[in-house]
């Protein structure tokens, strides 16, 4: 009677269930980052922030979501209809899609492919279309300027984003993120790859358009930039995609430079509980490290002013690109020297 339930089928269904759990967990984390950001910014600015709805104000996100769902979804009559609708979907889905490559524990993670890092770069390259199309389809000057700025910025920062990550790839000898985590056992990549990390941090900030790289939507000069004309849930998708992007990029930073699920420092060598800390709770380490980076994004927003546009572009081409190239050269030389070539 149950002969159709083969081990293969169970594995496939379990894999799908895991993927859905990861997706829901990631989107919920992203949604609650809005609450976290408002509370943390308030804390650093010596005020309370949203603390009325539910315990600690945790219900604020739910209230906001209900509100944004019931708002009128207005489309400007002068907009290019299809592209106008397509842009927020692209923004949201591409950022979520990039998360499939991030391994959270040795067993949890949606995809385990040998090309993971290349596919991430491909998705990051496509993500710029969301902002471009949003800016162009709105058919308004502020949106178009925001879209143009964003495109120029993203292209400049993508050039060395890939180069900054190639040092990590050379060290691990693989594009597979699980291999990269495994190769960091003992010494996290952030130490030998410090130059790559220095170039990666601004690139990661630029990918998700966060402060100080939020010039595409600089509200003091461009109203809201590329999503000026958006309202209701379409605007909501642009906003949530930013937070999904932060979760995704934080997870990727941890995976690439901070050992993924590896226990930090000497925690796995504490007598008695060391084996438990080192082996049994990989997700706790991954989540804790990712949380630190997510909070770091908020702190950057609280602490730094927005630089001028030309300063952002010259920082990319005159500082980050050379640093990434030097890192690539040094890493390649050291790896070859160690291999005895």
């Amino acid at each position: 009677m149950f002969s159709w339930i083969t081990p293969d089928l169970i594995a496939i269904v379990w894999g799908m269930v895991k993927a859905i759990i990861i997706l829901l967990g990631m989107v919920l984390t992203a949604a609650y980052m809005i609450w976290l950001e408002r509370r943390l910014l308030a804390l650093w600015q010596d005020r309370y922030g949203p603390n009325r709805v539910g315990p600690l104000g945790l219900g604020q996100v739910i209230a906001d979501m209900i509100k944004i769902f019931f708002k009128e979804d207005w489309m400007p009559p002068f907009a290019d209809k299809f592209t106008f609708v397509l842009a927020p979907f692209l923004a949201m889905s591409l950022m979520m899609l990039a998360f499939v490559f991030i391994p959270m524990t040795p067993n949890w993670g949606v995809s385990n492919t040998n090309m993971a890092l290349l596919f991430f770069l491909a998705i990051a390259g496509l993500a710029v279309y969301a902002v471009m199309l949003g800016g162009w389809a709105s058919n308004s000057k502020y949106s178009l300027l925001g879209g143009l700025r964003s495109t120029a910025q993203t292209i400049s920062y993508e050039v060395f984003m890939g180069l900054a990550l190639m040092g990590v790839v050379i060290q691990a000898g693989s594009f597979n993120l699980r291999d990269i985590v495994a190769a960091q056992d003992g010494l996290w990549n952030v130490f030998p790859q410090i130059l790559g990390f220095i170039a990666w941090v601004p690139a990661a900030l630029a990918v998700v358009h966060r402060t100080p790289f939020d010039l595409p939507e600089a509200e003091s000069e461009l109203v809201q930039g590329y999503h000026t004309e958006y309202s209701g849930m379409k605007f909501g998708m642009f906003m949530v995609s930013e937070y999904v992007g932060i979760v995704m990029v934080s997870g990727l930073t941890v995976t690439l430079f901070f050992g993924g699920w590896d226990a930090p420092l000497w925690f796995d060598r504490i007598p008695g509980i060391g084996a438990f800390l080192g082996e049994q709770i990989p997700f706790v380490w991954f989540a804790a490290k990712t949380f630190i980076f997510m909070a770091g994004y908020i702190l950057v927003r609280a602490a730094l002013p927005r630089p001028r546009y030309d300063q952002i572009m010259s920082a990319a081409w005159l500082w980050c690109l050379p640093i990434a190239l030097i890192n690539l050269l040094i890493t390649g030389a050291v790896v070859l020297w160690r291999a005895g070539a």
Partner: peptide, 22 residues
Amino acid sequence: AALEVIVYAGAIMVLFVFVVMM
């Protein structure tokens, strides 16, 4: 396949669309 997306769809076509938008 990955290079096709990164280089053509993600970089060259972005520049094309950029210019046409401008």
